[in-house]
């Protein structure tokens, strides 16, 4: 029993000293347990939208789940934040890359329904208006909010009235909305363009098993 106690003590000592030496994910990135944690983490902010840019799962026996968010404010530069999340929260948003997963408006009303990144700004007369005089009504931002187009990834996409109405229905039903033609979400075409510069560096240069075996047998430096 004495030997076991000493062994456990050594293990704890090693873990404790390593923690102080090597910064771990726990030290660097805050934990977001679920959507309700966003308010407490960004408690000083009263109007913002959180877009999920990417996620990654690290570790072998003990997994760590990370999310990368873009925080959009109407009057400030967007901020990129990496947080740790719980497994259930991670699995819940597997398909929701590029979507806004949390919004808080000026009335402090919070919304957790995964919607396209423009959800908070399109339809609000503060930020723009619907075009008139064409067959298809499209959203136009006011000049002072034109910067939001880049921030929310709408440089090659125009939000039309039909998408907006469909989004409202999904919002009322509390269902995720991925666009009329699934342009948003993890495999969405608009999302792919929006998040490509923000993705986690997921094992660049990983070789296939076959390549690894070939390298073991012969010199493939040429």
């Amino acid at each position: 029993m004495n030997k076991i106690s000493i062994y456990i003590l050594l293990v704890l000592l090693y873990v404790g000293l390593s923690k102080n030496t090597f910064s771990t994910f726990k030290d660097e990135f805050p934990l977001i347990a679920n959507e309700n944690s966003f308010s407490s983490y960004f408690k000083e902010q009263d109007l913002f939208s959180i877009i999920l840019l990417d996620y990654i799962e690290t570790g072998f026996f003990i997994k760590t789940y990370l999310h990368k968010y873009k925080i959009i404010w109407p009057h400030n530069e967007p901020q990129i934040v990496i947080t740790r999340v719980r497994r259930d929260f991670f699995e819940k948003h597997i398909k929701n890359i590029g979507l806004s997963i949390f919004r808080k408006n000026s009335k402090n009303a919070e919304s957790f329904t995964p919607l396209p990144p423009f959800a908070m700004f399109v339809g609000d007369p503060v930020y723009g208006h619907w075009s008139t005089g064409t067959n298809k009504r499209e959203w136009i931002f006011y000049p002072s909010y034109k910067h939001l187009i880049n921030s929310i990834g709408l440089t090659n996409y125009n939000v039309d009235w039909e998408s907006y109405k469909k989004m409202q229905i999904h919002l009322l039903q509390n269902n995720a909305f991925y666009g009329l033609h699934n342009e948003f979400g993890t495999n969405g075409s608009v999302t792919q363009k929006m998040v490509k510069d923000y993705q986690f560096n997921k094992k660049v240069g990983t070789k296939s098993f076959k390549d690894a075996l070939i390298k073991l047998i012969k010199n493939t430096s040429n």
Partner: peptide, 16 residues
């Protein structure tokens, strides 16, 4: 010195 000590501590844990 700290790195060396840490490696030796790890060795003491793995050795048994």
């Amino acid at each position: 010195v700290f790195q060396v000590f840490l490696k030796i501590l790890l060795s003491i844990i793995i050795l048994p």
